[in-house]
């Protein structure tokens, strides 16, 4: 029993990693006023590019670099379209998700000649090799890798950045009242472009954490709604890094629970539904008194008053 619980907590940490990273990316994007519904697609392409980079070089770090570049490119695209061209942010997000669906299979087929799944690629070493002698600790953290440490640092750093530095204050002002930010002399559009790219890069890393972090291959549609779950974790975490971390852990726990419940003799479909249903329930419970950055979703156009 204790073993089951330990291994479940271990898998909770592993599963929550991509959700937290992606939600953190969403936080930067939405705090500067730009919605990014395309997180799901960016994660999927990040996972693919991570696998491709790792496949061509045999080194997971190169895969990570590929994912980061991919995230930056898509982020730049989303930023350019929504900020400079005033494309509807939701529609562009939907387009990114479509792009992710199509392009991932196109490239998967191109690189591996298979439309379902890649071959095994190099992944990040797990911490198991370092800590496998320590009993409880190794059960909890053994299956994790360097990306998890990176995520912890990012969460803490983001908290200090957003709430304890002048740049963070500016970021929050841009999301709440871009006119005020503009009159303070902040270049609103440039900052937004930057933060949207940061957000997309984090989402792409979250995708890479799926493919080269834990299972070491890419398969079609492997993100399976985690990008949307991350958006829900963002709402649930009230656009606050530490709370996002906790809500991400919660979503990871639900997933781990779901996997552990599958051994029981009960229609597996109902168990697989659990994380999605819980997401809806959590969203309902937290949405009412929970207002995010005030100006998210609208393009900032200089000189136009409401």
């Amino acid at each position: 029993m204790a073993d089951t619980i330990l291994s479940m907590l271990g898998s909770t940490l592993r599963i929550s990693l991509p959700i937290i990273l992606c939600a953190l990316g969403g936080m930067f994007s939405e705090r500067c006023g730009i919605l990014n519904i395309g997180m799901e697609g960016i994660m999927l392409l990040g996972a693919l590019f991570g696998a491709i980079g790792s496949y061509v070089s045999g080194n997971a770090y190169v895969g990570l670099l590929f994912a980061i570049v991919l995230g930056a490119v898509i982020g730049l695209m989303h930023a350019f379209l929504t900020i400079k061209c005033h494309t509807n942010q939701i529609i562009d997000g939907v387009a990114i998700n479509l792009l992710g669906d199509g392009l991932s299979i196109l490239l998967l087929d191109l690189v591996w000649g298979n439309k379902g799944k890649s071959t095994e690629v190099a992944g990040f070493a797990t911490l198991d090799s370092i800590i496998h002698d320590i009993p409880v600790i190794s059960d909890l953290f053994g299956s994790l890798n360097i990306l998890f440490l990176m995520m912890i640092i990012l969460v803490i750093a983001s908290y200090f950045y957003v709430f304890r530095t002048p740049w963070g204050l500016r970021l929050r002002v841009i999301g709440d009242k871009p006119e005020a930010a503009d009159s303070m002399g902040i270049n609103v559009e440039r900052s937004q472009m930057l933060y949207v790219m940061v957000g997309a890069i984090l989402a792409a890393i979250a995708g890479a954490a799926l493919s080269i972090g834990s299972i070491r291959y890419f398969s079609k549609g492997m993100v399976a709604g985690r990008g949307y779950m991350a958006l829900a974790a963002l709402v649930f975490g009230m656009w606050h890094p530490i709370l996002i971390f906790l809500s991400g852990l919660f979503f990871g726990f639900i997933q781990a629970l779901q996997i552990n419940l599958q051994v029981y003799d009960f229609p597996v479909q109902f168990i697989q539904m659990i994380p999605y249903v819980i997401t809806i329930v959590m969203l309902v419970l937290t949405s009412k008194n929970n207002k995010g950055p005030k100006n998210t979703g609208k393009p900032y156009i200089r000189g136009i008053r409401e």
Binding site: L98, L99, G102, L103, I105, L106
Partner: peptide
Amino acid sequence: EFIIVLQA
């Protein structure tokens, strides 16, 4: 699936 990219 190229068609999906085209749609996007």
